[in-house]
Every structure is written in C-alpha cells, then in structure tokens.
C-alpha cells in the first residue's frame, strides 16, 4: 500500500503540502497521486468518525445488523439482489459473507420502529429474500479502527534523557 494511503487513512484532514513534507515528495506529485487514487476508486471518500453515544440527541438513533438469506439469481449471483438492498439509504454497510447466511447489512434509523418497519416492509418483502435475522446494536466499542472510549492522559514524564 502506498504510504500516502497509510497516512490519509489515519488523518484525512492532512493537506497535500504537509503530506508531501512527511513523505519527502513534491506537493504536485502528491496531489496527482491522490487524484489518481480517487479516480481509480481506491479512495472512495473522506469522512469524520462520530461517537454518537456522546451526542445529546442520541436517543433518536438506533443501529441494527441484519443477516439476510437470499436466493442467488441466474447469471448475476448475489450481486443484483445486493444492489437492490444496498441502494436503500437506510443501509449503511452491506457485505456478502460465507457461512450460514449470505448478506450482512448495517441499518441505521431513528427508532426501533423505523428499523423494524424497514425490515418488514422493504427488506423481507423483496422477491429473492428468504429470511432475515435482526440484531439491534447495544453498544459500540471500536469504530473503523478507533477505540471510542476516551483515552486517558498520557502519563509519561515530561522530560527524560
């Protein structure tokens, strides 16, 4: 993996100038490389990781992981039905898995009802969906590699040889 990606994956806010300095490359070169990654779809977006547990209005927010068993279709396998499912804006993530079920999707909604309505009305009623199992998410510990518990202050002594 290019070191540009290693740095950006940790901190997307870093400017091309700073990135160039860190990696001892030219800013133009770095900009070009980043553009290239974006074009190829290797970099698909830049976003902020929010710890929703600390938000005041967190009461209006629930997530659920849903296991979905589907019937694969001729020629297109799972892709077509996956596309129909992940196109719903409520679906935040969608993966095809090996094992006892096929698709794992992450749903976000304002309440248990919105999520269960979505499952009952939109998801389970889809033609090739055979079965769904919904797991409501109780607590997030780590998100995209970031531990959500606030770090304790560094206890290192401030000066040493």
């Amino acid at each position: 993996m290019d070191e540009i990606l290693e740095v950006l994956e940790k901190d997307a806010r870093i400017s091309p100038q700073e990135l160039a300095r860190l990696l001892r490359r030219q800013p133009e070169q770095v900009k070009k490389a980043v553009k290239g990654f974006e074009k190829q779809g290797i970099i698909v977006g830049y976003k902020t990781i929010i710890n929703r547990e600390l938000l005041q209005d967190n009461n209006n927010f629930v997530s659920a992981l849903i296991e979905v068993r589907v019937t694969p279709q001729k020629d297109v396998g799972f892709d077509k039905i996956a596309e129909r499912i992940y196109s719903f804006p409520e679906v935040k993530s969608c993966y095809l898995l090996s094992g006892t079920y096929d698709l794992l999707i992450l749903i976000e909604g304002r309440s248990i009802h919105t999520v269960s309505d979505f499952v009952a009305e939109k998801l389970a009623s889809l033609e090739h969906v055979r079965r769904t199992t919904t797991h409501f998410l109780l607590k997030r510990y780590k998100e995209d590699g970031v531990i959500l518990k606030r770090k304790r202050e560094n206890k290192r002594i401030a000066i040493s040889y």
Binding site: R156, I157, A158, I159, S160, Y161
Partner: peptide, 13 residues
C-alpha cells in the same frame, strides 16, 4: 518542567 502543567514536551527520551 515536572512542576508545570499542560507542557508540550519535546524533551522525552
């Protein structure tokens, strides 16, 4: 140094 608070330390080994 040790007596001060909120120091940005570039003095560590």
């Amino acid at each position: 140094v040790l007596g001060m608070k909120d120091v940005i330390s570039l003095g560590v080994g």
